[in-house]
Design a protein around this nucleic acid. Structure first.
Lengths: 193, 193
DNA sequence: TCGATACTACATTGAATTAATAGGATTTAT
DNA sequence: ATAAATCCTATTAATTCAATGTAGTATCGA
């Protein structure tokens, strides 16, 4: 049930790019992203290219180059990213929505294991397809701001105080099943449905 | 978020051994288990050994040998088996209960990704630690019985009609969070909490 | 006792995936 | 031109996963 390092690095980088956007930094270098989360630079380069090809980020080359998000963080669900990097969320192919594949059991309609794994798949998807990058950025930054911590990637002109709150309101969350419990839901507070 | 083939085969075999117990078959050969779900025999042998070492099954050697469950199916949760074969349920090490490991992020208390993955871990664990092998066996066999199908591993003297229902009642389910939705819960019907 | 059957143990191999590294080519600002 | 960044391709190292092979051992039935 593991998220790969590749997937983890991709999400960490997107989250940091989301934070950078929030504090007014347009471009972030790969070396900065790598340093912020202690990730191997050259490996992260590959991951960023994959994210670029998929349209989540865009790059500028040359001396003052770097990466930025191409779309608002509210439009990127975590599930999309995980599927891109790590493949289907489903534990077994025969319960995958996006990439179904027949399994070896004699009859799927009677397979108890399949039904159980379908529940697992739905539980995972309910969370990962529900929350967006903006939600995770919000959770990450809110606690830092209230603790008076400086946000990463903030330039001298963009102090934490300059961060405008509520940029996340007016959301429409595409919830499949509302994850009515869970730390993310609680931390999101009144922003959540 | 994948369940390995090894884990899948282990669960399939345990389920079939559970069915065999239900229909009065004490021992099932590896070749039978393999044939029933189209699994490679030699690979399954290794998996069965691992299950034996962990105490879930016992074997009898020799001509009429085979495997059987060592404990009642109600005492084996799916989560236990998955952890044994595939390791922690948690997508990332920093949210694992059984096998925590520090991650590379600068501060875990502010890490939004970690909180999200904690929710995922809890959602998975809520299902896999809640349902037992007996539940999955019940779901698998009930539909077969109502459809008039013969159960696998039933010997001439043990027809499906000879299966006594309700052997599963009086359960005490160790639910963490009740999975109030989900196909398994529905199919279990009045047996569920 | 002999032989067939079936599990056990161990060794190895092949394939696939993942993680990381390396080196250079290209682009851009100074 | 030079420095600094992305981009591209290749390679490797490690790990996991799946499967196979071979030899051995226990048991039963004739």
């Amino acid at each position: 049930m593991r998220l790969s390092k590749r997937g983890e690095y991709a999400l960490r980088s997107l989250i940091n790019l989301g934070i950078a956007t929030k504090v007014g930094r347009s471009l972030v270098r790969v070396t900065e992203l790598a340093k912020a989360e202690d990730m191997p630079v050259k490996f992260l380069e590959q991951v960023m290219q994959q994210l670029r090809e998929a349209g989540y980020v865009e790059s500028e080359r040359g001396k003052h180059g770097g990466y930025r998000l191409t779309k608002p963080a509210t439009k990127i669900t975590i599930g999309q990213v995980v599927r891109l990097i790590d493949g289907p969320l489903a534990p077994v192919g025969c319960v995958s929505q996006a990439a179904y594949e027949k399994c070896s059991c004699p009859d799927e309609t009677h397979c108890g294991l399949r039904m159980l794994m379908l529940d697992v798949r739905n539980a995972i998807a309910a969370i990962l397809d529900c929350y967006t990058l903006a939600d995770v950025v919000e959770v990450t930054t809110r606690k830092m701001v209230t603790n008076g911590w400086p946000l990463p990637f903030s330039t001298p002109g963009n102090t934490p105080a300059a961060v405008q709150p509520g940029e996340n309101s007016g959301r429409t969350r595409a919830a499949l099943t509302s994850p009515s419990e869970g730390v993310i839901h609680q931390l999101l507070g009144d922003y959540a449905i």
